[in-house]
Computed example of a mutant assay.
Amino acid sequence: MKQLIISSINHNLNNAIALLDAIDSNTYKNTSVGPYYSSIGSHIRHTLDFFDCIISGLDSNNIDLTARKRDETLSTDKKSAINYIYQLQETLLSYVDVNTDYLINVTDNMGQGKVTVNYTLESILSHANSHATHHYAIIGYILDHLKVEIKINGFGYNPTSPVNKREGI
């Protein structure tokens, strides 16, 4: 199962690379779309931060999703984001043969303070992949508002969405 999860994440990350290859730097950094005025780059950075928290916390068995690095270079420099994604994909592949028969402490802020719950590696990676898809959907709205048309099949859609409604951006 872990191999399928990692393969799915890497496919999703490949879609991010395809997007970054298809847009120019100004589009990547554009913050003109309300109501939040966030850029595509900030959403890419945010999704990568989530994965970084997982990787950073695995050895100590304490993943803190509130301890994001927020490296603004990833928000503003497409090439840095692409290189980070390639490194992330390599790291994820190294987890295929790792023993995961234990629970991992994962801390997040649910809106009323931090809470720590137990996950498996597979469950936190699945959560991170769904989180990325959610932000890809927001990126789709930003692109639409900017009148930038790109087709990446399935980008921003949950795989359980009916196929006739899952065109992608």
Rank of each mutant, 00 (worst) to 15 (best):
E72I: 14
H127G: 03
N118F: 14
S38V: 02
S56A: 07
N61D: 10
L48M: 09
S75I: 01
E72S: 14
N12K: 09
N83R: 14
K147F: 06
N12A: 14
I55F: 07
G57V: 10
I5Y: 02
N109L: 10
I82S: 00
D59S: 13
G113C: 15
A22I: 06
L121H: 06
T91N: 08
N153M: 11
V148M: 05
K78N: 07
M1K: 03
T73G: 11
D21M: 06
S126T: 10
Y37E: 01
R68D: 02
T91D: 02
P159I: 04
E149P: 04
L65G: 02
E122I: 11
S130K: 14
N105I: 03
Q89H: 07
T107Y: 08
P162I: 10
D59T: 14
L74H: 03
I6D: 00
F155E: 06
I124M: 04
R70M: 07
T116V: 13
D49S: 03
N164D: 13
I5T: 03
I63H: 07
D24E: 00
Y95W: 12
T120H: 07
I5V: 04
N158H: 11
N129W: 04
R68A: 06
D64H: 10
T73R: 11
D108E: 14
N30F: 03
L121P: 01
L146N: 03
N62Y: 12
N158I: 09
V98D: 15
I169R: 08
Y36M: 10
I142W: 02
V148K: 05
T133R: 01
Q3K: 11
Q3H: 14
V98F: 14
S75N: 06
N26Q: 14
T107N: 09
G34N: 01
I104T: 01
D144H: 14
H11W: 11
L65C: 11
I44E: 04
I169Y: 11
V117Y: 13
I23T: 04
R70Y: 00
G113M: 10
N61V: 03
L65T: 07
S32A: 09
L19S: 04
S75Q: 02
I85D: 01
M110I: 15
Y86D: 03
T107L: 08
S32N: 09
A81I: 05
N109T: 12
Y36T: 12
D71V: 10
N12D: 04
D59Q: 15
G34S: 06
T66E: 11
G113K: 13
L92Y: 02
I138A: 00
H43G: 03
V148Y: 06
T133I: 10
L125Y: 04
Y141W: 08
G154K: 08
C53Q: 09
E122V: 05
T27S: 11
A18S: 12
N15K: 15
R70K: 07
N30A: 03
E167H: 13
S42F: 09
S56D: 12
Y136W: 11
I55T: 06
E90H: 05
S130Q: 12
I17P: 09
H131V: 00
K2D: 04
N10L: 06
S7M: 05
D101G: 15
L88D: 06
A128N: 00
L65N: 07
V163R: 13
D24V: 03
N83P: 11
K78I: 14
N118L: 15
R68N: 07
E72N: 15
T120M: 01
G168R: 07
